[in-house]
Amino acid sequence: MIHAKPFDFPYDGRLDAAKTALVVIDLQEDFLSPTGYFARHGYDPAPLRAILPTVSRLIAACREAGVRVIHTRQGYRADLADMTPYEKWRRRRAGLEGTDILLRSSPGFQIVPEIDVRPEDIVVDKTCNGAFTYTDFEHVLRAQGITHLLFSGCTTDVCVHTTLREACDRNFQCLTIADACASGDAYAHAAALHMVTVEQGIFGVLADSTAVLAGLAELGRRA
């Protein structure tokens, strides 16, 4: 088990590598680059970049323990055919019209090189904040027999939390790794982490990477 709040994970004490996946959300150039989408909105990407070593350690530990690694990427088609009028309006309002930011055809769509993405990893591309919306994410999880999800990535208050809520509503068992998630807004980050634990774990449980790494190491020894 992994020591977590408000209860240890998983609740029944049955941590199974074959049924568990680490979800690494949107660690892309567009969010972490000083010239990307996030920076253009006036946010400092430094807190996002600060979690990269921790996420890398988690990825390595998951591979050692036999836990699947799933990456998500957010962006739109190059022809904008999947972008609604409201989304286009927001894009213009943000001064992004005519740029390739958040387009799947752009270099900014790619995951940053500090994160080791391997052929055996699963990559889910999305247009929405939540990874379940208009994607095959749930089908992939069900097909792989995955029932337990460990959450990392950015941003804690938007894409991480939206995907976490979607997963909980689909009865996946969820753990959010506090120091492996980040946001450009410190208040929103702290609030999003706090919300995981309210009502005795309404959105699963919260743990730090040290506890998760210890649990993964135990899984590896058992394997």
Rank of each mutant, 00 (worst) to 15 (best):
A178E: 15
A178S: 12
D179C: 01
D179M: 13
D179E: 10
A180D: 11
A180Q: 11
A180W: 07
A180C: 04
C181A: 13
C181I: 10
C181F: 06
S183K: 06
G184H: 12
G184L: 12
G184A: 03
G184I: 11
G184P: 07
D185P: 13
D185I: 07
D185V: 10
A186T: 04
A186F: 08
Y187N: 15
Y187F: 07
Y187P: 01
A188W: 00
A188M: 14
H189L: 00
A190D: 10
A191C: 03
A191D: 04
A191S: 15
A191F: 09
A192Q: 01
A192P: 00
A192L: 03
L193I: 09
L193T: 03
L193K: 12
H194T: 11
H194L: 13
M195S: 10
M195N: 13
V196F: 00
V196E: 13
V196A: 14
V196Y: 04
T197C: 06
T197N: 08
T197M: 03
V198K: 10
V198S: 11
E199S: 15
E199A: 04
Q200H: 07
Q200F: 14
G201C: 08
G201Q: 03
G201N: 09
G201W: 08
I202Y: 05
I202E: 05
I202W: 03
G204A: 13
V205C: 11
V205H: 11
V205A: 15
L206C: 04
L206N: 10
L206F: 02
L206T: 05
D208I: 03
D208R: 07
D208V: 11
D208T: 10
D208Q: 06
S209F: 01
S209P: 01
S209Q: 04
T210C: 11
T210H: 05
T210I: 15
V212Y: 14
V212D: 13
V212C: 09
V212H: 12
L213T: 09
L213V: 10
A214D: 15
A214E: 02
A214R: 13
A214Y: 01
G215I: 09
G215P: 06
G215H: 03
G215R: 04
L216M: 05
A217H: 05
A217F: 04
E218I: 02
E218Q: 01
E218T: 04
E218Y: 03
E218P: 02
E218S: 09
E218A: 13
G220D: 00
G220N: 15
G220L: 00
G220H: 10
G220Q: 15
R221H: 00
R222W: 02
R222C: 05
R222M: 13
